[in-house]
């Protein structure tokens, strides 16, 4: 064999054909990621059941109206757990998922193919959006059917919902991506990533109203996106009556947008500077 390049693979002569676009491959990855997610039954149950069980638990224990607001405690929890559910899909399951991808060779394999690296992240975002959207639909259905939650009638509330959801999912997903580099292995990822998330839920007003918390804890929670995401969802689902339950007697939607927007930018910077395509074992 003197000229092996002309061997048995005729397609090599047409190597000038264009590379598949990052967007197309991102969509393809999104489909594959979503398929894999729903086939892994434990992860599906863990992701969806956690906020649902908590909502039903808290909704049953703390029934009854909150004084003077026309809002019931279970309605408050519905809004809060929607925030926690969105954050869970973005931060927790994505963070653990990427740590797993790093550990099981997914990232290394992908890095060795001509797939543009952005396609991986587009795929993850699609996956997170699907999970978060389903989570919200399920929690809302439970809220409406069991806890007399009224879905907002005005378009403006749904516009608010849309931007809080998009900004919140994005910020959570970027933070989840960044935090995925922390655990040393996939085995430790669940613990390393879930622990701060649980703490954050307790101090961000998901379970315990802010009015019952010390100021220093409120200050810590105010740094992170979950508090603001929940506040945004309360604005959508509890309406004007619930505003008086807020610390400042207002939902402060402008600040919600500002803080979530800042986390999107900060999270992006964090991802770009810390993301590892290799596991720690790989050096």
């Amino acid at each position: 064999m003197t000229d092996t390049a002309t061997g048995t693979a005729p397609s090599r002569t047409t190597a000038t054909r264009a590379m598949p676009s990052a967007l197309k491959l991102g969509l393809s990855r999104g489909m594959v990621e979503t398929k894999m997610f729903f086939r892994e039954k434990d992860a599906v149950v863990f992701t969806f059941a956690f906020p649902i069980i908590l909502l039903m638990l808290f909704g049953s224990i703390f029934a009854g109206p909150l004084e003077g607001s026309g809002v019931t405690v279970s309605q408050l929890y519905t809004a809060g757990l929607i925030g926690a559910g969105v954050m869970g899909a973005g931060f927790q399951s994505l963070g653990i998922g990427i740590a797993g991808d790093r550990d099981d060779g997914t990232l290394k394999r992908l890095a060795g193919t001509p797939m543009p690296r952005s396609a991986y992240f587009i795929g993850k975002i699609i996956n997170v959006l699907v999970i978060a959207f389903l989570e919200v639909v399920i929690l809302l259905a439970i809220g409406v059917l069991m806890y007399d939650l009224d879905l907002p009638g005005q378009v403006s509330s749904w516009v608010t919902f849309a931007w809080v959801f998009v900004l919140g999912v994005t910020a959570a997903a970027l933070l989840g991506t960044a935090v995925s580099s922390l655990p040393r292995s996939a085995k430790s990822a669940a613990a390393v990533i879930s622990m701060p998330f649980v703490v954050l839920q307790f101090i961000s007003g998901v379970f315990i109203p802010f009015t019952q918390m010390p100021e220093w804890l409120i200050n810590i929670a105010s740094v992170f996106p979950l508090k603001w995401m929940c506040q945004g969802f309360r604005a959508v689902f509890l309406g004007d009556g619930g505003a008086m339950l807020e610390l400042t007697k207002s939902y402060e939607l402008d600040r919600v947008a500002l803080v979530l927007g800042a986390w999107v930018i900060g999270g992006l910077v964090l991802c770009l500077t810390t993301f590892r395509w290799k596991g720690r074992r790989d050096g």
Binding site: S28, R29, V32, R39, D104, T106, T113
Partner: peptide, 21 residues
């Protein structure tokens, strides 16, 4: 590598084929 455990062989190979021109 130990990845893509939940996909079928055909699904995996078809998906990766999409990466190449």
């Amino acid at each position: 590598a130990n990845d893509a455990a939940e996909l079928s062989v055909r699904e995996t190979v078809r998906h990766f084929a999409g990466y190449y021109p």
